[in-house]
Design a binder for these strands. Structure first.
Lengths: 215, 215
DNA sequence: GTAGTAATTATACACTTGCATAATTACGAA
DNA sequence: TTCGTAATTATGCAAGTGTATAATTACTAC
């Protein structure tokens, strides 16, 4: 009885690791990797610093896990919304662009994390692999959607041209994503997704904004 | 005589400050702000660490100066090429997009620096001011060029719409710039400027790629 | 030449960092 | 209940950090 006396509570390995990762990400987003010291992380996760070494072999290991967590979360958030659309490929494409350029995917926090990790991603092989996997996945999905939307519209597209279109659209989307997160005040609400849909539509030659015809 | 014995050489304040800034930027680009320690900077600039404090009141001061230097250099490099075009506004616009998406402006080093500084920019008032000034300058130039190009083509554009177009184009350009620097291998040479010109043209409704008519 | 002075080096200090190791504590099994 | 063990804390350390201060050194004015 009298739990107040307990100096700490035991948690499952999964919960603790997750709590440490969440604390790490919040600190990195706020102050960069430099601000995410073991002591600061431990404090934010309400544990003592020694515990970090109990769950992660090194701080580098924790940083890598945090990056993986962030990328996975963003990917999931992006495709969760787009996958819900079950009408036309064109609408699914528009939904994907929308989800990519709207919070929580497009947000200062996301971009701050991306920027903070960039250096390490370029140096650490494991982080680089995570980055490339995530990137390739998004690009492939985008390319498939573009292809399907064009086919839907009765257009024949060569694989080479399709690849070019996907590259261009991906660049525009990623770029607007970063831009929106780096300069949140530069855009009115809904302006960023609007620009994205407009640009992607202009590039592939389809009007993504027009409502589906009512039969 | 026998200058070999000299333990150091005196340089003008301007040269030394510049050398320290250049050393700082190269280190930040390679290893992030975290890797740019006073000792590493001093070593790369071939001086001892004490000298840094002689020219900059603090390390933060040096970082701020380095950021200013980087942004100014990028702006100059961007507009130097575009300003050389003296034919039509349309061609100047195309040249601006090109210069923005081509080395040395669009390069891994530039984007690495941008990403490394992002956190500090958000926190430090002086750096934020530098950032906003640079950004606003580019945007205004872009908006003017778009307006001139459209007028040239005989199109009337409301200020509101012009602002929207400039925002969209700016977002696409900045985005592609970051994308190209973050993933240099994802694009073939000349592919990025091509996508940029194509996208900007599609957004504002002008073909920027067509050659000027030969009389 | 020589003295003055600013540029540059040399040295040291207080503080933070990541990490290791030992000492506790909570919880499950018996 | 008690006992074992893994989770958690407590403490300490060596290396690296920015900065301050004093000691040199190169150039300049006279």
């Amino acid at each position: 009885m009298n739990d107040e006396r307990r100096k700490f509570k035991r948690e499952s390995a999964e919960q603790r690791k997750d709590a440490l990762i969440v604390a790490t990400l919040s600190l990195v987003a706020e102050m960069g990797v430099r601000g995410a010291t073991v002591r600061a992380i431990a404090e934010r996760a309400d544990v003592t610093q020694g515990l970090i070494r109990h769950y992660f072999s090194s701080k580098e290991d924790l940083i890598i896990a945090a990056y993986e967590h962030h990328m996975t979360t963003m990917t999931d958030q992006t495709f969760a919304l787009a996958a819900a659309v079950d009408s036309s490929a064109r609408d699914r494409l528009a939904a994907l662009v929308n989800a990519s350029l709207r919070p929580p995917v497009a947000a200062p926090r996301s971009v701050a994390l991306w920027a903070s990790f960039l250096n390490r991603v370029q140096q650490d092989a494991q982080m680089k692999a995570t980055h490339e996997r995530t990137y390739a996945y998004f690009r492939d999905q985008l390319q498939d959607l573009i292809g399907a939307a064009l086919e839907e519209a009765g257009q024949v597209t060569s694989p080479t041209r399709l690849r070019h279109l996907a590259t261009a659209c991906n660049g525009v989307i990623d770029g607007l994503w970063m831009e929106g997160g780096a300069l949140p005040d530069a855009f009115a609400p809904d302006e960023l997704p609007g620009i994205g849909v407009e640009s992607v539509g202009a590039i592939i030659g389809l009007d993504l904004e027009q409502k589906a015809e009512q039969p």
